[in-house]
């Protein structure tokens, strides 16, 4: 197994995918804890569809994909947050509308492009080939920023996740931190989308948090465990994808499903012992 890993590392393409993937897995898992607990899981899903639309349009118009997708997805994140908190349209309906619209526009854009050199499949389900050298630099910087912000604002993120009204009443500007979480999520999704595919990226946000909540009981341990599960799942998934020649995004999600089942069973055993 070690030998295969060394072999994997010798390929520059795989090295890039590993660097970006580890960082994205970590960011997504940390933010995921807060998103899942705030009942915002679907926002991640909605954003990845918007990201797909933005990427499709960017490549049809021959623009740099990340520079188009990042602002568009951030904008969509703020919009979704507003809609879910105080809109006439209920949050889940709003997300469904926005994500299917973006998907449809993206597919239209791709089908109308004459060259047809865009691989729809890789956009939807991800591909390691699509991680370019420029992407690596951007991803490392952005993911680093996400991690730093998360650690720096950890106590506030906990407070607004646990009890937004109390946090507001004691002078924490909850709206600013909600926007911060939305912003960091948007950035993470865009970086991760090329690798994982827009259909699968939101699983990186939701699965690790859900799995660790089965077993762990404090916010800090859930957060740390999510990060660990996510990175380990990513590495195992990449490994499987390499030796079995399966798509990497789907392989990683399957490992995450396995972890969820294991943690679910472990959680049952632990709580059974306590009772």
């Amino acid at each position: 197994m070690g030998e295969i890993f060394v072999e994997m590392l010798s390929s520059p393409m795989l090295r890039r995918a590993l660097i970006v993937g580890i960082l994205v897995s970590l960011c997504a898992a940390l933010l995921g804890v807060s998103l899942v607990l705030k009942r915002y899981s679907m926002i991640g899903d909605g954003l990845s569809h918007v990201g797909f639309g933005a990427l499709a349009i960017a490549s049809v118009m021959n623009l740099a994909p990340m520079t188009v997708a990042i602002p568009v997805v951030i904008l969509a994140a703020f919009l979704l947050l507003r809609l879910s908190s105080n809109g006439k349209i209920k949050g889940d309906a709003a997300i469904a509308i926005i994500s299917t619209s973006a998907l449809a526009i993206g597919v239209m854009a791709v089908s109308m492009s004459r060259g047809m050199n865009i691989d729809l499949n890789s956009y939807l389900f991800g591909s390691i080939v699509s991680v370019s050298r420029g992407d690596v630099a951007t991803s490392v910087v952005l993911a680093g920023a996400v991690l730093l912000m998360f650690v720096f604002f950890y106590t506030k993120i906990f407070a607004i996740t646990f009890d937004e009204n109390f946090a507001k009443a004691t002078g924490t500007n909850a709206n600013v931190y909600n926007m911060l979480i939305a912003l960091l999520t948007a950035v993470t999704i865009v970086i991760g989308m090329r690798l994982m595919g827009s259909m699968l990226i939101s699983s990186l946000i939701i699965f690790p948090a859900l799995s660790s909540m089965r077993v762990f009981r404090s916010f800090r341990s859930v957060t740390i465990c999510s990060g660990v599960i996510s990175v380990v799942s990513f590495l195992i998934g990449m490994f499987i994808s390499y030796i079995a020649d399966t798509p990497c995004g789907a392989s990683i999600v399957c490992v995450n499903i396995t972890f969820f089942v294991l943690f679910f069973i472990a959680g049952k055993i632990v709580s059974g012992k306590r009772a």
Partner: peptide, 10 residues
């Protein structure tokens, strides 16, 4: 999932 001390500290 939050420990008692995490909640009180907040």
């Amino acid at each position: 999932p939050a420990s008692v001390s995490e909640v009180v500290l907040s």
